[in-house]
Design a protein around this nucleic acid. Sequence first.
DNA 1: TGGTGCAAATTGGCAAAACCAATTAATATA
DNA 2: TATATTAATTGGTTTTGCCAATTTGCACCA
Lengths: 243, 243
Amino acid sequence: MKNKRMFWNIVEKIETLIDSGAYPPGSRLPPERELAETYLVSRPTIREAIIALEVRQRVEVKTSSGVYVLEMKGAKQDSRPCSAFELTQARALVEGEAAALAAVTITEAELAKLKLTLEAMQKGINADQADREFHIIISNATRNNAVVLAVENLWKLRDTRDEIKNAYKNVCSQSDSDRLDEHTRIYNALKNKDSQAARSAMHHHFNRLINALFAVSEAKALEEVKRKSNETRGLYSLNHLVN
Amino acid sequence: MKNKRMFWNIVEKIETLIDSGAYPPGSRLPPERELAETYLVSRPTIREAIIALEVRQRVEVKTSSGVYVLEMKGAKQDSRPCSAFELTQARALVEGEAAALAAVTITEAELAKLKLTLEAMQKGINADQADREFHIIISNATRNNAVVLAVENLWKLRDTRDEIKNAYKNVCSQSDSDRLDEHTRIYNALKNKDSQAARSAMHHHFNRLINALFAVSEAKALEEVKRKSNETRGLYSLNHLVN
DNA sequence: TGGTGCAAATTGGCAAAACCAATTAATATA
DNA sequence: TATATTAATTGGTTTTGCCAATTTGCACCA
């Protein structure tokens, strides 16, 4: 993709240099003219790149003095490490309560929409999409936007952290029938306006998920041990000597 | 402050025009040359402004075609209306579960820190700060970063929406002793590692808050009715005729 | 010797002109 | 009428030039 405009490449390169520590925070970048020379582009192009970096809050340009790199605090958001287990536990708590709330506020229309997701999941097409819709509908049924926000943020966490995404992918696809059963049980509790049952069913749902995650995690750990063992075996093997 | 560079002014003007609907989403901005003429600046300056808008995801520039304004969905996050009641209910649910979790994972050190906040609150200095610390410590005690995140996001919601901030301000300051009692009760439950009691105490805490919010809300509604009534009375009054 | 002030070099800000490449619109032709 | 060709539009980039603010260094003076 060379369709990108020239200055985006410069932005990328300079940003890489900043991240690599070549231009530590507080330091001054080389003058525009010099950058233009080193990157074999004209000065306006360099200026455009610098402006892009400035808008992104990566650098600060002081007229007649130079452009200075400033440390980014935006990355602080990402820096809260969070495992799939933690996320699932949190979802169990939050969505469990959401279900309990929704049991007394959910409408017939929302129940119908829930039923549609169950049918979609049964057919197996877009099961993950149906899963998401199921949980979103319930959070919306609470009539509490703060709850909706909390639930959404946990979904966002799942979407943004690759490690979590992979962990879920391994688990979700392997036990669709379990998931469908659990969703159905949650649906029935909501239909019966039974808060306790709804909460319990939601907890059950996530509990199974956590156990599945554990199982996968264990399996992976075992595999890792095996692999390392094999490496070691290879290291000390005398197979190449005997024949 | 005319220290700003020329293109920032252009960015500001164009952004205003976009927000005002003069350039609706999907529409095309005038060509660079034309903009340069109308704003009495050179083309590079216009280009810089457009690049700034592009980095901000306000416009999209298609080579040899034009620059098109695209709708911003970043502001949609903020625009989820959410009342103080909703927030408080959500906090009750989430923090209630957090407390229940924390009851089994909290350390002696954290209990000690909690005690400090109680003492600070008793002295009355920085009571709101102590309040915040109290809740944060508990969420951290869950050893679950996803839970911490959920709690943090609800605090953020409180901080960002002025309407909510004001509602809380009216309530918090008027019943410090209640708040201290409730915090103490939560603390004791955590100290006893009693999940049920911790959840219950947290719920009780927020329940009082909701009731207080309702009371204030009612009072304000009454006041409003009175004010309008007075206005009307003024409108139809004959006081100026009789004497 | 040390401090002060002025001047030159550095550096970013902006403008103008010119050319290119891609897209789009208009037009002419089959 | 449909299609192909052409011309105009539009953003992309470079080059050049000058300006203003800042920084730097050196000379001069105390």
